[in-house]
Amino acid sequence: MSLQLFNPFKDLIFDEQFCFLTGDLTTEKISVFPDWLMDHFKFGGDRIEMMDKAKSYHYEDLKLPCSPRVKKAFEQLDEKIQEAYQKGFEGMASLDENLLFLWTGRIVYGHLYYEMRYERDRLLRQRENFNLSSSLRERFGNFHLMMQSIIEPVSFIGKKPWSIAVFPLKYSADIFSYRNDAINLLFQFGVNGFGFIACLQDNGIIGEKQKDILDKMKGHVLHPVQFEELYARFHYSDYLLQYRSEYKIENNDQGITMEAIPILQVANRPTFGFWDEDIFAQLLSNYWSVYGIQREDIIKFQKPPLSYLENPYSKDFIDPESIDLPF
């Protein structure tokens, strides 16, 4: 007998009386952003915008309905992450990637959940039906299934279905850097001491593409401008990825296993599309705007694109201590 688990993307169920993870009726809730994190950096009263910029919420008001056992599981996970966080980079780097995936996934999924509810309610007011493409239903349904591994016998075999990179990072003590792309399931997190980047459903492909620069970084404490450039590389690589992640899912009375299916390339269709430096420079300038760096500073006539990660001629990693920018 196979294990029957709740999939909200099958019937598009995002009502607050149903646990977001199990579908059980509930009155319990858990914050999308861990309370200890909001308390530490005092951002609970700040606002976060939905994708269309027409709606925003206070971070502290974003809450997911959850059953008591789901709430307990995430509270226990929060305790483990907070303990590791207090130990800085060494603590975070020692964590099992599955824990980082679940902790990161709860935040990204929480944002996705609110995007779904907001779009559904907006369309209902216009007397239109809320729907998702089959490809998005499958992607988000698989992501939800991965998240259920926190309470259910869902396991991953073979290559991990994500890319997660953790590294030392130098920030001013009171700065907290965070971004997520709920639709593409990307996450960026940085504080003084460490940062990490997660592609939550790429089957490790983007991590492999960026392996060269990740290897060069080892032993260095990144400057924030390098952190932003690294995330831009992950983000643009995700945009260029020409194949969707697929899985072999086996379900029996012992539980569910998920195995990443290797990409079978079609002729004349590489794994990633063409890397356009002009487009990348525009993306990167969005992340570097805090430093006053514009697209025109990144791309200059007859000069290689500006990079704070690699010397454009030797391809050597740039020593973070040599970067004369604030952190």
Rank of each mutant, 00 (worst) to 15 (best):
I206L: 06
V166I: 15
D61Y: 13
S155M: 04
R179H: 13
I298N: 13
P304F: 03
Y114M: 04
L12Y: 11
H223A: 01
A232I: 12
F194V: 05
C19G: 11
F187K: 06
W288Q: 06
E16Q: 13
D35G: 03
L77G: 07
F74Y: 15
Q294K: 14
A165F: 15
P8S: 13
N251Y: 14
G193W: 07
E79F: 13
H111M: 14
K218C: 00
L102K: 13
L214C: 03
N251S: 12
T257R: 11
E115V: 01
V108C: 12
S135L: 06
F272A: 04
I206Y: 05
L21E: 03
D276H: 05
E208W: 03
V225Q: 09
N180Y: 02
G204L: 01
L222P: 07
L136Q: 08
N252Q: 11
E246H: 14
L325C: 08
L200I: 02
K42C: 06
G273N: 01
T26W: 07
Q148L: 06
I107R: 14
N251P: 04
M1N: 05
F18T: 04
L230Q: 02
L214D: 01
K209R: 15
A173Y: 04
Q86Y: 05
M217H: 08
L169A: 14
S307L: 08
F227Q: 07
N311W: 09
S133R: 12
L306C: 05
